[in-house]
Amino acid sequence: MKKYTFTEKKDTRSGFGAGLSELGKINPDVVALCADLTGSLKMDAFQKEHPERFFQVGIAEANMMGIAAGLTIGGKIPFTGTFANFSTGRVYDQIRQSIAYSEKNVKICASHAGLTLGEDGATHQILEDIGLMKMLPHMVVVNPCDYNQTKAATLAIAKHEGPVYLRFGRPAVPNFTETNGTFEIGKAVMLNEGTDVTIIATGHLVWKAIEAGEKLAGKGISAEIINIHTIKPLDNEAILKSVRKTRCVVTAEEHQMNGGLGDSVAQLLSRHLPTPQEFVAVNDSFGESGTPDELMTKYGLDSINIVQAVELVMKRK
């Protein structure tokens, strides 16, 4: 098992904030909108550096999505910022009609996704956002795993013409990917080559997958670990290549089992390479208040759950 280390834990939302600030300096067409969560989204730097390109819309997310769509007409590249819940479910029809169907170059940037939002509880812990967004035709869905990768993803999506959903989170998590690394939309990242099982993880579950890989190595199981930072378009080739070798797969995500990364992988495999698969995801449930670690344990999204899923799926080969 390849060794991964980190020097500090950082929140992915700060990676977004840093990326947005950098974009502000290098791309004069980038504009940003926020619905009264500037501090939470770490958009303060951009706001301070480019006040004329920052639009505080207040607690009015539907209006924010519409204004963002309009801002593209004339060449701006709007980045909207609010919690994932208010970036998707609350404004689904606005995104569907004014952005996705209208083919507008809007970047929907969503923080506090999933259970790790923590103590605020289920009203704010959206676990359906990946599914909602990936169903929209031509929407790109990106869920990076740590600070560095979120910053890189923020820079990369500005260069992509078309709507993008960028999902990140609140808690500080191990920052282990390369500083100023490259980010290619739709390109899987191979973290560890293995032969017994393929673990496909996204977002905060990527580090959990690495931890699981180490535990599995101790048990003599060789896990291939893939970081899927782009759920749509999915890197079909990378997944099929790995699964042809390992012949079983575990998907891991901080999302509902229905509609998430696991579904996308299952759809791919059922069409091209039917394969035993286990899902580490929230099973048809809302979240609740608690610390991020407590919630990840209670809802079965920890490294031990990945280990158990691997042991189960390997028996099904």
Partner: peptide
């Protein structure tokens, strides 16, 4: 046509966005 419409209530926000871009562009 520069925006899809049909689901009601969305066009004013879009128009405002386009107006803001005109201001940014000095148009």
């Amino acid at each position: 046509v520069r925006i899809a419409s049909g689901s009601l209530g969305q066009g004013m926000s879009v128009a405002i966005g386009a107006a803001l871009t005109k201001k940014l562009n000095g148009d």
